[in-house]
């Protein structure tokens, strides 16, 4: 069913030189992105999710960033070995990116229409008339009403939600094969967020573009993702289909994340489940499982040896010793088990 991946990340390692020491921001991260799917990458701030994805665009300033190892295969060749000139041909063309703040990614002195067509004129052999026609189509696609008039307006004439739509239109202008969306809805209100998510899903249905969606909001993940990768302390600790991650999670950190978010049906008498403590300092990452110090059910080995990825099911992997055959059975927390039962029991 799955076709060839369009992007393969293999053991990517990224360090940052800071005056406090070398921060190992990304530690051997591997994942594939397949055509037409949405891979959500969830994690908290400092987990390395944004850095990982900026590496795909080779956008990290060096120094302080250092690509310390691994490769990113896109269309068969390693992005990390490409020159700046080659990258310019990829950025905005084959891979494009949407950022959190729509205002800073638009040029305030340039009309919206020009900003959309510019990308096409740069990367495609296309007349400016055709580019304009395509720009109108795109604006229509992302749900900007009255595109003919809007084309000649400046960014400040748009509301926050509309600006983010423009940013999406620009990102799609050159028909990229991969769209990286870095917290595209975090700065927006919930009602606007819901609209933008709908737009992105529609767009994907029509264009078969693959999307990497970076977010910390599990509600958004549940809404958009086909597959989910959970990042913690610079590593992917669990990766699987969206159902695997939400209904049958295996890594204690994933449990913690899911448990700490109240859903609308949460009982308020009950305490929210929290993950005790704070994430580790990546200048000197812990020797074993990075999450061990915060895991109430941590085992001796967790403090000694970093676990490999264990297969937890079809295309579902988790980096935790509790999946080792010799490990004692630890229970999935009740709150998640209940949800799993609900899911397996068919519709609620």
């Amino acid at each position: 069913m799955m076709n060839e991946p369009i992007l393969q990340m293999k053991n990517l390692e990224i360090d940052f030189k800071t005056y406090a020491g070398t921060v190992k921001a990304v530690r051997k991260v591997s994942f594939d992105v397949f055509e037409g799917e949405t891979l959500a990458i969830v994690g908290e701030s400092g987990s390395g999710k944004s850095v990982t994805n900026q590496a795909i665009m080779k956008l990290l300033p060096q120094p302080p960033a250092i690509y310390a190892g691994g490769e990113i295969l896109f269309g068969g060749s390693n992005i990390l070995e490409k020159s700046e000139k080659q990258m310019e041909r990829i950025r905005g063309n084959e891979i494009s990116m949407i950022f959190q703040d729509p205002m800073t990614s638009l040029n305030p002195t340039m009309k919206i229409g020009k900003q959309i067509t510019e990308v096409m004129l740069k990367h495609k052999k296309i007349s400016s008339g055709d580019a304009k026609k395509r720009a109108l189509e795109l604006m229509d696609l992302v749900g900007i009403p009255n595109p003919k008039k809007r084309l000649n307006q400046y960014p400040h004439e748009f509301s926050g939600g509309m600006r983010q739509r423009v940013v999406i239109a620009i990102a799609l202008a050159a028909d990229p094969r991969l769209l990286i969306a870095d917290e595209p809805t975090t700065a927006l209100d919930v009602t606007i967020q819901a609209q933008i998510l709908e737009v992105m899903k529609d767009v994907q249905k029509n264009s078969r573009t693959s999307i990497i969606f970076i977010t910390h909001d599990l509600g958004v993940v549940a809404n958009v993702a086909d597959r989910v990768a959970v990042m913690y302390a610079g590593e992917i600790v669990e990766i699987g289909s969206v159902d695997d991650i939400f209904y049958n999670p295996q890594h204690p950190y994933t449990w913690g994340l899911l448990g700490s978010m109240p859903d609308m049906n949460a009982d308020k008498k009950e305490e929210l489940r929290t993950i005790p403590g704070s994430p580790p300092n990546l200048v000197d990452p812990p020797r074993g499982d990075a999450f061990a110090a915060r895991n109430p059910r941590a085992m001796k080995i967790d403090f000694e040896k970093s676990p490999p990825m264990f297969e937890a099911g079809k295309d579902h992997y988790a980096k935790t010793w509790r999946l080792h055959p010799a490990a004692p059975k630890t229970e999935v927390p009740e709150i998640i088990r209940n949800r799993y039962m609900q899911y397996n029991g068919g519709d609620q």
Binding site: V283, A293, R294, A298, E304, A326
Partner: peptide
């Protein structure tokens, strides 16, 4: 790996609250 390696020892949360710098 030996079964003894998998003994549950619990978390060490207090360590995560110490300030690094």
């Amino acid at each position: 790996l030996q079964p003894s390696d998998f003994e549950i020892v619990g978390n060490k949360t207090s360590e995560t609250e110490t300030l690094a710098r």
